[in-house]
Design a protein around this nucleic acid. Structure first.
Lengths: 252, 252
DNA sequence: CGCCAGTTTGAACGGCATCAACAGATGTGG
DNA sequence: CCACATCTGTTGATGCCGTTCAAACTGGCG
């Protein structure tokens, strides 16, 4: 409700994107996921991967996927939504810079997200994508790529199981506090507003992430705002007392 | 409550284990996770990995882990428990044959489960384990191993996110139905009792898996037993109408 | 045979969902 | 420029599902 020092919407949704053709040139080479890969692998990836710049709300992959896509978030943030029932959507995951994804249904071979899931940019975002089945030859040839991907997958799986265990038992307030802290690790913080969660987050998003209703999310956030733990508005949240939230969200 | 055709406890907890030294010999070579690996890699794994036979209730790894462990369930079933609060335990995951795990705290490099987590055999179980850091040289050398591990991790992550999304929003009855179907995919079904979940499961376990209380789990299972969807006793559950449960859990 | 972990059942409480109404912000089209 | 629709957020009343607490029962192991 309180007006922040500078307009959050401009900070969260910059019109300019630095994904110029020149910047795209070195993009593959600067990704941590590909660090240590051989020159030929990097050249292949550079050839195969397509860079896309997205604005907030845009879909990362087309609605009708013909084949599975392997992708990597370079800048910005992406949410993964899934219809749980006919009228209810849950957010499975929030992908930040450096996070990989596999999207689409494959007859053989596993994928992370189904073709029916929606991947949507939550702010001005840049992603690299390529056909999933082009990846296997690269993995077979480059001994560094596989372990790098495995590492990230282990980290993601570990994080997800931790998140799940908290969502299972804790109260709505604890879940929300944990999730806010989780969200701050996704996306790149804006230097002008350090506490601001650096992408668009509505009450509905928080509810879909925490498995609660948006009314409950609104009530809890209002209570925290009274205690001056945070400030928020339409689609943005600025954390002012991370310590208090972290304490509430963690166990002990 | 109803007595099953033959005693479940004998089926679930066979005293004899076929993990004889001779059987252990070829154990590494028959694992799907290592299929396609080079002969030298298999020889190294055969040398590095230690086979252990466990009875129901035994811990897979010692309570005081000195270094992270890479392991693989060969036979039987293992549950992964974590203390969420001081007096509450959640089951993060149930590992069946073919499932890998990384257990222990590492200063650098990610692990799946923390040293404080408990891995416990739910039936007569056989696992292969080795020090985690011995794995990296093998991954760097063998181009098949990395992708195999990545594949499994993708499958696990995908499954876990699906499970999480259901635990977030659905009712206790739906969760339980989904989890029962999930559990049937873990462990090897006993030929003499096809519907029997092939390891020890108590109401407490189910509750810790679903994020509900054991009283609620008991009430729901009693209702299902009245409808003859299943039979159960102390530590065992036999599914009689998988279709009804699958529909209730909306398992596709 | 005795004991304990596992299980069952009941009663009362409370957190959160549901439904509803409204207010403010944003976008749209004439 | 305003009227209008849509999206986002707020607040209140009510009811239900699952927790909590408590007591009793029982299967299977020592």
């Amino acid at each position: 409700m309180a007006a922040p020092s500078s307009l959050p919407h401009q900070l969260l949704n910059p019109a300019t994107c630095r994904c110029t053709p020149e910047a795209r040139k070195g993009m593959v080479h600067t990704q941590a996921l590909f660090r240590g890969a051989s020159a030929s692998t990097l050249a292949d990836l550079d050839f195969l991967m397509r860079a896309r710049s997205l604005r907030a709300g845009e879909a990362v992959t087309p609605t009708a996927l013909t084949q599975p896509v392997f992708g990597l978030v370079v800048r910005g943030t992406v949410k993964v939504e899934r219809w749980i029932t006919l009228d209810e959507v849950a957010i499975l995951e929030v992908l930040g810079p450096g996070d990989l994804f596999l999207h689409g249904d494959s007859p053989e071979g596993p994928v992370l997200y189904r073709a029916s899931d929606r991947l949507t940019a939550m702010t001005t975002t840049c992603v690299l994508t390529m056909p999933c089945d082009e990846l296997n030859p690269l993995l077979a040839r480059d001994p560094v790529l596989g372990p790098r991907i495995s590492w990230q997958l282990v980290r993601r799986l570990s994080q997800t199981e931790d998140r799940m265990s908290r969502l299972m038992v804790e109260t709505a307030e604890h879940r929300l506090a944990y999730l806010l802290m989780y969200l701050t690790t996704k996306g790149t913080t804006r230097p002008k507003a350090p506490g601001l969660i650096p992408f668009n987050v509505t009450r509905k998003d928080l509810a879909a992430l925490a498995g609660i209703t948006l009314e409950t999310a609104s009530r809890i956030l209002s209570a925290w705002e009274k205690r001056e733990w945070l400030r928020s508005g339409r689609g943005w949240i600025e954390i002012r007392d991370a310590g208090a939230l972290r304490q509430l969200g963690s166990v002990t």
